[in-house]
Amino acid sequence: MSTPVQAPAGQQPADSAGRRAIWLAIAALAMTFMLPLAGLVMAVFALMAGIRALPQLKSAGKPPGIAVGGIAISSIALTLSALATAMQLYLMDEYSAYQNCLKGAGTVSSQGECFTQFRDAAQKKLPPDVLELLGAVQP
C-alpha cells in the first residue's frame, strides 16, 4: 500500500489556485456594488491571487484561462470600486447632510425634499453631466 503524494507545505494544487482567483474576483465584483471600499480591498486580493495562479497553472501544464478570467474580473471590480469609493469620499459632506436631513424627515414629501437638496449640492460640486451619467434621478 502506498501513501498519497502531497504537495509541499505552502503550495496548493494549480487547479485550486485558479478557482480561488476566479471566486475571489466574483466576490470582489459583488462587494463593489454593496460596499465599494470592501470591494476595493477584495479586488486587490483577487488580482494578487490571479497573478499568483498564472505561473502555477502554466508549470502544471494546465490552461491559464481561469486565472486570466480572474485577473480580468478583478481588474474591472478594482476600477469600479475605486471610482465608487472616490465618489463617496468626494461627496462625503453632502451625503452626511443628506443623512441628517432624512433623520428629521417625517413624511415622504420631506424625504423627497432631502433628496432634492442632496442632488442640488452634488450638482454644484460635480461637472454638469456626471449625475446624468450616474443616473441620479429623483425616486
Rank of each mutant, 00 (worst) to 15 (best):
M92G: 03
D120I: 14
A86L: 12
L83A: 10
A46P: 08
P128Y: 09
P4Q: 11
G18W: 00
L35F: 03
T107N: 10
L133P: 00
G69Y: 11
Q99M: 07
S110N: 01
Y90G: 11
Q111Y: 04
A21I: 01
T107L: 07
F33Q: 02
C114S: 07
C101H: 01
I22H: 03
T32P: 00
Q111N: 07
L80S: 03
P8T: 14
Q11L: 12
D15F: 01
M87W: 05
L57R: 13
G50E: 02
E132T: 12
A84T: 02
G18Y: 00
Q117L: 15
L126P: 00
E132N: 15
S74E: 10
D129P: 00
A86V: 10
G104R: 02
L133A: 13
L126G: 02
P64L: 12
G10L: 08
T32R: 02
V108R: 11
P8F: 15
L83S: 06
T32S: 09
G10F: 10
S96D: 14
V108N: 09
Q11F: 13
Q56S: 07
T116R: 15
A28V: 06
Q117H: 14
A46G: 11
T3G: 07
L80F: 12
P36G: 05
S59G: 09
Q12S: 09
S81G: 06
M42I: 08
L24T: 04
L47G: 11
L134E: 00
Q99V: 05
P64A: 15
Y98Q: 04
A25F: 06
F45K: 06
L47C: 10
F45D: 05
L37D: 04
M42K: 03
M31W: 03
T32W: 02
M48V: 12
N100I: 02
P36C: 06
I66Y: 03
T107W: 05
Y98D: 02
I22S: 03
M42R: 04
P139L: 11
G104K: 02
G135S: 03
P63I: 15
S74Q: 11
T32F: 02
Q88G: 11
P55A: 06
P4V: 14
L89A: 12
P36K: 04
A53D: 08
Q56M: 12
S2P: 03
P8K: 15
A49N: 04
V137D: 11
A53G: 08
P36V: 04
Q138G: 07
I73D: 01
S2V: 06
I71N: 01
K62S: 12
V44Y: 07
F45V: 11
L80E: 03
L89H: 08
C114L: 07
W23S: 01
V41G: 10
T107F: 06
A84F: 06
R52L: 08
P8N: 14
